[in-house]
């Protein structure tokens, strides 16, 4: 992939080349573009995702900031 760059002033380093935006400007085509949930097919896959992706509520061993506390 060819990255787009822009020139910016960096403290003590003068003008440097930095990474510009990485998204494609404009409107992506197609209805299906954002449909990420449909990628999961089986029930097992969906439950597995809940345990990892939504672990804040559904993982047995990972409560984020609440891990350190006594679960109420």
């Amino acid at each position: 992939m060819v990255y787009k760059t822009v020139k910016k002033e960096a403290p003590g380093r003068g003008e440097v080349d930095i990474l510009a935006e990485t998204y494609e400007a404009g409107i992506p085509a197609g209805e299906e573009v954002g449909r990420w949930r449909q990628k999961m097919e089986s029930r097992d896959e969906k439950l597995k995702y809940l345990k990892s992706g939504e672990r804040y509520w559904y993982s047995d061993d990972w409560f984020g900031s609440e891990k350190r506390k006594n679960p109420a």
Partner: peptide, 11 residues
């Protein structure tokens, strides 16, 4: 709530 649970920004 997800921000809280992820941690680092309080309880």
């Amino acid at each position: 709530t997800a921000m809280v649970k992820d941690g680092g920004l309080g309880d």
